[in-house]
């Protein structure tokens, strides 16, 4: 286990150190201490590392992650795991706005609540939130899955493409072109797997969720609406 004291050594050295280990070491376990809400912790990691961040983080923790498993033992500030490519990010506490935004792959798990714009423009990432999510979540989401064990705020899935949304609790309102869809066996199977990987097995059963997706009415311009522009 490598321990990195962020207060003593600084952010630039942390990220350079993590970037430098790619393919050069078998020391894959890291812990980062004295985070004090700092921004951009463990951003751009591209190696199969196991990183534990002790404490609450600021903006963009674990952004652009590839391959690494990053655990945040605290809350996460805005933009956690933004544009993740692969690997996993697990937040023990709450996450601020636009968690997992634009993510292309990997798994983001938030054990508390996520605030507004969770999964905005997600492009293949899977997100499992144990608590609630805020308004405008999964706005323009393109692919991947968003699983919410609690409630969703206003305008869920507005202007949605092909991402799959599963919510167990109440949805305050659906966004434009987002509709409830039938839950078929393949979706229950997918959910079972997401709940297991999202460390939520035993907290919820797949049958308790409802599925939401795109009505696909915004894909093409409707010529009858031309006079509105």
């Amino acid at each position: 286990m490598q321990t990195f004291d962020l207060a003593a050594r600084g952010l630039r050295e942390l990220n350079q150190t993590l970037h430098a280990v790619k393919g050069t070491t078998n020391q894959t376990a890291w812990e980062i201490i004295n985070t004090k809400g700092s921004h951009a912790i463990a951003v751009g990691v591209d190696a199969p590392l196991d990183i534990t961040v002790h404490g609450t983080t600021g903006y963009y923790c674990a952004g652009m992650n590839k391959q690494a498993t990053i655990r945040i033992k605290g809350h996460a500030g805005p933009g956690v795991a933004e544009n993740m490519m692969s690997g996993a990010v697990i937040v023990d506490g709450n996450a601020s706005q636009y968690a997992g935004a634009t993510g292309r792959g990997g798994l983001l798990v938030i054990k508390g609540n996520a605030s507004s714009r969770c999964g905005v423009s997600m492009k293949g990432i899977d997100i499992v939130v144990h608590g609630n999510i805020g308004h405008m979540s999964a706005f323009m989401a393109q692919s991947g899955s968003l699983v919410v064990l609690g409630d969703a705020g206003d305008a869920l899935g507005d202007s949605l493409y092909e991402a799959r949304l599963f919510v167990r609790g109440k949805v305050k309102s659906l966004g434009s072109d987002c509709i409830e869809k039938e839950m078929r066996p393949e979706h229950l199977e997918l959910l079972e797997d997401l709940l297991r990987r999202g460390e939520a097995t035993g907290k919820a059963r797949p049958e308790e969720f409802r599925r939401y997706g795109s009505a696909r009415q915004l894909y093409n311009f409707n010529i009858d609406n031309a006079s509105a522009y």
Binding site: G37, T56, G77, Q97
Partner: peptide
């Protein structure tokens, strides 16, 4: 405001209620 894009974090204990634009301010 209803869009809430300007950041805000709050912390409460038996001793105080604190507000910060970022958690960093309260560490």
């Amino acid at each position: 405001d209803p869009i809430a894009c300007k950041p805000a974090v709050m912390a409460e204990t038996d001793q105080y209620v604190a507000f910060g634009s970022e958690y960093r301010a309260m560490v």
